[in-house]
């Protein structure tokens, strides 16, 4: 599958998906005018790719500064997708980068509560 690289804009995230290496990252701020239009195609590609993986090592990094509620729905959906991918026999690691004691730390830890098969790792910036 062709890699996806989208530079960050004022209202949207930087996207760096390397399908061959199974490394994926989302970083920056997310409050695009049309959230489904931004996330929808990305989620479709990920679903398509993860469905073909067996015993793969997958690393998904989030480094989010701010995201609005519709973006949060997609982030929660990604956590769910990664959990299911892990359940299907892959080694999935979610890296969550944020400032220490920031709201984002609590948000990441809260979402990680539901993970049973995928592993979650906090990484503090600075």
């Amino acid at each position: 599958m062709e890699n996806i690289k989208i530079p960050a804009e004022e209202r949207s995230l930087e996207v760096d998906f390397d399908f061959a290496a199974n490394t994926f990252s989302l970083s920056g701020r997310s409050f695009p005018e049309n959230v489904p239009e931004f996330f929808g195609p990305l989620v479709d590609k990920l679903k398509e790719h993860f469905a073909t993986q067996k015993g793969a090592r997958i690393v998904f990094s989030f480094s989010l500064v701010y995201f609005n509620s519709p973006s949060a729905k997609y982030v929660l959906g990604l956590f769910d997708l990664l959990e299911r991918t892990a359940e299907a026999g892959n080694e999935v690691k979610i890296l969550w980068a944020c400032e220490k004691d920031d709201d984002m730390q609590e948000m990441g830890e809260d979402m990680a509560e539901d993970l049973e098969s995928a592993t979650f790792e906090l990484r503090f910036l600075n």
Partner: peptide
């Protein structure tokens, strides 16, 4: 249960924002 939890998370985020 999962949907309810996610709804609570979204509301929390919305409040914080």
């Amino acid at each position: 249960k999962k949907l309810l939890k996610n709804l609570q998370r979204l509301m929390k985020l919305s409040d914080r924002n």
